[in-house]
Design a protein around this nucleic acid. Structure first.
Lengths: 155, 155
DNA sequence: AAATAATAGTTGCAATGACATCCTATCTTA
DNA sequence: TAAGATAGGATGTCATTGCAACTATTATTT
């Protein structure tokens, strides 16, 4: 009842990260709905666009996402007709991923939507602050992924 | 430092936010497993600890989390015996939330686990950088939650 | 050459979280 | 006071994501 502040009193990066993540999910889902691309698939689409012929394994490693999540996202993108799988002739274990015609057509639109969200998200930050934030987030990501890797080794 | 193979080539805050969020979820889940508290519940536990007698609605607003998500998290915390619901005698619509004995006992342990993760996540950042990152994340959260609110109004 | 190990990908299950919808209690207003 | 509006909360459904376990293919070892 007494919400004197709209903002959470969370002075830890984890809470900010979590809240920003959830809000970005909502915005991305809404923006990409016309193309039937969910918040869980666009990263894969954009990465394949930059590196056609990439394998699912390489995608998972580059995006630091579990390979089973990758498999499911690719399946959806394939079902929507944006991505095409091709078995690597030199090693049948690999699926090589390519964009289809409509995949290539939708990429610029998705990019525009993402740019719009990014632009609105950095209101009130100058270029220097923005770059600094990216650098700090990168460092934080290195730290947490290092922690996760260390945990995995222990098991 | 610059290991292209492991780090994603993502120069957008959204991707960093997403990756950090997912990794933090993994770490928190692992750390809090002994107490049977999931990554989706600890925020509620800690917030109730700071503001006993808070309602679910106020919790949702403070944490910027959907009220149905709050309801489910509280139910789990109640099932584990950490939180107690009490109907507000002055307005029977409200559930006032309090910690139980074991809730009060577990809070310091959860806090310690979170502090440990936070500490390891900011390796390589001095206090000034850390504070700056918090401020920038706060600004970004304001921006995205403003966008979400604006979207809701349009509907 | 056969057995074993390692790797890429898939499937099933569970947790997180949002949205739509409904129920119930309280407040407004006619 | 009765009818409708409002608000807190619960439930069902769906998307995202990770883990365990599995299949299939390739590499290695004996």
């Amino acid at each position: 009842m007494n919400n004197e502040t709209i903002m959470p009193s969370c002075e830890s990066p984890g809470r900010y990260i979590s809240a920003i993540y959830r809000h970005l999910q909502i915005l991305i889902t809404a923006q990409l709905q016309p193309y039937r691309i969910g918040s869980g698939q666009y990263i894969f689409l954009m990465t394949i666009a930059k590196k056609e012929g990439i394998s699912q394994k390489a995608l998972s490693e580059e995006l630091l996402i579990d390979k089973t999540t990758t498999a499911k996202a690719i399946r959806k993108l394939e079902a929507e007709g944006y991505v095409r799988r091709e078995t690597d002739p030199t090693d049948n274990r690999y699926n090589l991923l390519y964009l289809t015609q409509s995949g290539r057509a939708v990429v610029p639109k998705v990019q525009a939507a993402l740019n719009d969200i990014s632009r609105k998200s950095r209101v009130g930050m100058d270029d220097e602050e923005y770059e600094l934030m990216l650098a700090l987030l990168k460092k934080m990501l290195c730290n947490v992924s290092e922690q996760v890797r260390r945990r995995e080794k222990e098991l």
